[in-house]
Design a protein around this nucleic acid. Sequence first.
DNA 1: GCGGTCCATATTGTATACAAAATGCATTCG
DNA 2: CGAATGCATTTTGTATACAATATGGACCGC
Lengths: 226, 226
Amino acid sequence: MSKASDSAYATIREMIVSGALAPGDPVREEALAEICGVSRTPIREAMRRLESDMLIQRSESQRSFVSEWSLDDIEDAYELRALLEGVAAHRACKVITGEQVAELKAINARLGQAIARQPADIEGFLAANRDFHALILSVVGSARLEALLQSLIEAPIVWRTAHHYSEDELGRSHHEHEELIAAFDRGDENWATTIMEGHIRRAFHVYADAHRSLTGFDDELVKRSA
Amino acid sequence: MSKASDSAYATIREMIVSGALAPGDPVREEALAEICGVSRTPIREAMRRLESDMLIQRSESQRSFVSEWSLDDIEDAYELRALLEGVAAHRACKVITGEQVAELKAINARLGQAIARQPADIEGFLAANRDFHALILSVVGSARLEALLQSLIEAPIVWRTAHHYSEDELGRSHHEHEELIAAFDRGDENWATTIMEGHIRRAFHVYADAHRSLTGFDDELVKRSA
DNA sequence: GCGGTCCATATTGTATACAAAATGCATTCG
DNA sequence: CGAATGCATTTTGTATACAATATGGACCGC
């Protein structure tokens, strides 16, 4: 998409993710237009995209608000993601080439290097992790599946900045990726599926634990969305 | 959404579904603005929605075209839909109330009446079928799942008008719905899941057969999308 | 004739002005 | 005092004008 609309999207999104716009806050076009330094037109486009990402919701009277996610909502997103990434792993297993497996190994090696640092390079870890999952999706070659997963992957990012990984958890991710590669190597589709599903589900629980400790087990801080 | 943008969406969508806009055709904002009798602004909004429905694609230079779907693409959509509706059935089984089951029975009775007519009331069948699946989704209460399924359900409609159901197939749908209700009644989640998955998969094959006979087994008429 | 560059045109992107609708508040009536 | 109504203000929706960019073809040099 075009420059103004794109940068507005990135800016607003970052404001939501960072918390500058808190869940429940109203999102007004004119205010954002000033902040982003563009007119309302590209702002509206950006807001529609954020709406389809489910980061923004609209009231019955067309006013927009930052979405409020309960832990249950996020669990739902993770569960659906586990299901769909499981399918992706299953399908990838059938068509992946040796060269692509080698690429996965290289990416996971990068991931390993990132977590071996002291302190661990979380940004590097996240980047490698994104690349790993993205490569599997591109191997599958289903634009449809890719589109479905997009919104699911983006959802929990709202809490990303508050999310602290332990050494253990980082290492486990690395190891699970290795197992996945082994399943691809051997062409065992069902193994690949179950590893991937477990991988995503574990990620949810790591997330949920962090979330609970941050919110003092008080889920009322994050209200249910409609 | 608002009136102009909504009606534009409906109009353009109908043009695509009916074939007035054929797969691969360029979709120009100004031309549609004239047709819909509104300015380009609401047309642009409508086009973004159609784009996220994957009914429209954009070239690298921001020009829009009606999406071209191969049978493989449609099979992909059906397969993902089977998976997700299977999950919906599974979840619904756990929370559905007796009252809601009664509603499902009523809807399926309507469906039965529609197909009992001579000739069968296809529109009535489709409406009841939509209601049946929509009610199950609403029972589950996952906005996320609902959103994911939306685009999958809409996809094959492009070919709807060309789609002829046989008496047998209509009856089978009715019967599968009854089975699903029985699974809900008994609270057998896995049964519900497998019935639903089979139900959607069968729908694909009915569709695929019609598609093949219409295209004379020549899939080249429907090119691969990017 | 072939390839490339430049320009006219077509198309999309953005800004702004105006219209429609909703919200909140004040006022008034019961 | 409470509820309802009407008005001022805020916010979103739409139209239009203008800017930026892409496309296609003509023209020129080779």
